[in-house]
Amino acid sequence: MIDTTETVRPARIPEWMRRPIQTDVDYAETHATLKKNGLHTVCEDAKCPNRHECWNHGTATIMILGNVCTRDCRFCSIATGKPDGLDTEEPQRVAEAVETMKLKHVVITSVTRDDLPDGGAEIFAQTIMAIKTRMPEVTVEVLTPDFLGRKELLFKVLDAGPVVFNHNVETVKRLQRSIRSGATYERSLKILKHASEYGDGSIKVKTGIMLGLGETNEEVMECLQDIYDHGVRLLTIGQYMAPTRDHARTKRFVTPKEFTDFEDAAYKIGFEAVASGPLVRSSYRADNMVTA
Rank of each mutant, 00 (worst) to 15 (best):
A160V: 11
D72S: 13
T7D: 15
H57E: 11
L158P: 11
F75A: 08
D146K: 07
D3L: 13
S178E: 14
Y284R: 10
K190S: 06
I128M: 04
E122M: 14
H57Q: 11
G120T: 07
Q92S: 09
E137V: 04
T133P: 02
R177K: 09
L234S: 06
R233H: 08
L148Q: 04
G120S: 00
P49Y: 03
S196E: 12
M210C: 14
I2F: 05
Y27T: 01
L34N: 04
A195I: 00
T255A: 00
E53V: 14
R19G: 14
V138D: 12
L34M: 02
A95E: 13
E90P: 13
Y185F: 12
A248W: 03
R252L: 14
E141V: 08
E122S: 13
T250P: 02
D264V: 11
P91V: 10
V140H: 00
E29M: 11
R245M: 14
K204W: 06
M129R: 12
G81L: 05
A275R: 09
H105A: 03
R71N: 10
D264I: 10
G81S: 13
V169P: 11
T216R: 05
N56T: 04
R134M: 11
A195Q: 03
T207K: 07
F75C: 11
D229V: 11
E90I: 04
V25K: 13
W16F: 12
R252K: 07
R252F: 09
E99P: 02
T33Q: 01
P278H: 04
G201S: 08
T41M: 08
K251V: 06
T59I: 08
E152P: 05
Y185Q: 08
K156T: 15
A97T: 11
R249F: 03
E197P: 01
